[in-house]
Amino acid sequence: MDITEKQIDGAWLVAASGRIDSNSAPALEAVLPERVQQHAATIMDLSSVAYVSSAGLRVFLKGVKAAKASGHKLVLTGLSPSVYEVFEISGFTAIFTIADDIDAGLAAIG
């Protein structure tokens, strides 16, 4: 998994690519919770992520909890149908703000 980051229209963009599984989740865990605490609005772009395991879901849960504790926003964007299904089955679609793409994510942040 590769992770890139940049400022975009008043939000912090974290983009991942590849698989988020037990091998790669620690790399994301080293970035996401800290970024959501540092920035009032963070967009996590998953458009290049093909797979998310339970280890990845745990990192996202930690990220959204950190965002809420800080009074900040975290929006997930670009979920493929298979990744969205993992979020849906786990009940995470009720926990996260999910947008189709980065532009929609920016609009969701408001």
Results as ranks from 00 to 15, higher is better:
93 T>Q: 04
59 V>D: 06
6 K>H: 14
43 I>V: 15
77 T>H: 01
96 F>P: 00
78 G>R: 00
9 D>N: 15
90 S>Q: 06
102 I>D: 09
10 G>T: 06
57 L>M: 14
41 A>G: 11
100 D>A: 15
29 E>Y: 01
12 W>L: 11
34 E>A: 13
59 V>S: 09
73 K>W: 00
22 S>A: 15
34 E>V: 14
71 G>R: 11
45 D>F: 07
6 K>S: 13
73 K>Y: 03
81 P>Q: 02
98 I>P: 06
35 R>P: 03
55 A>C: 09
36 V>Y: 08
91 G>F: 02
59 V>C: 08
39 H>C: 05
26 P>W: 02
99 A>Y: 04
35 R>M: 09
37 Q>V: 12
91 G>T: 12
12 W>A: 12
33 P>N: 04
109 I>W: 04
47 S>D: 07
58 R>L: 04
10 G>N: 11
74 L>T: 02
1 M>G: 12
28 L>A: 09
60 F>R: 09
98 I>K: 09
49 V>E: 03
40 A>Q: 14
45 D>Y: 05
54 S>V: 07
44 M>A: 15
1 M>E: 01
90 S>N: 10
51 Y>F: 15
26 P>E: 12
37 Q>W: 00
3 I>G: 04
61 L>T: 13
64 V>E: 11
79 L>Y: 05
104 A>K: 12
57 L>K: 02
72 H>G: 04
27 A>V: 14
88 E>S: 15
97 T>P: 00
96 F>L: 08
66 A>F: 12
38 Q>S: 13
74 L>C: 05
25 A>N: 06
33 P>V: 02
4 T>Y: 00
105 G>A: 08
88 E>K: 14
47 S>I: 04
21 D>Y: 11
35 R>S: 09
97 T>F: 06
71 G>T: 05
17 S>T: 13
42 T>C: 05
89 I>Y: 00
39 H>P: 00
36 V>F: 10
51 Y>H: 13
76 L>M: 11
47 S>A: 12
71 G>Y: 07
70 S>L: 04
13 L>I: 04
24 S>M: 05
22 S>H: 14
93 T>I: 14
44 M>I: 10
88 E>G: 01
21 D>E: 12
100 D>F: 03
13 L>R: 02
30 A>W: 10
22 S>T: 14
51 Y>A: 04
68 K>R: 15
110 G>H: 05
95 I>Y: 03
104 A>R: 08
82 S>V: 11
9 D>C: 05
38 Q>W: 03
65 K>L: 12
38 Q>H: 04
71 G>P: 01
6 K>M: 02
3 I>Y: 01
24 S>R: 03
47 S>P: 01
110 G>D: 04
73 K>M: 13
24 S>L: 06
82 S>C: 02
57 L>A: 13
61 L>C: 09
89 I>D: 08
85 E>A: 13
96 F>T: 07
27 A>M: 11
87 F>Y: 06
46 L>Q: 02
15 A>F: 02
55 A>N: 07
62 K>P: 07
45 D>S: 07
86 V>Q: 10
102 I>R: 10
90 S>K: 09
1 M>D: 01
13 L>W: 03
56 G>F: 07
1 M>P: 13
83 V>H: 13
109 I>T: 11
98 I>V: 13
10 G>E: 10
53 S>P: 02
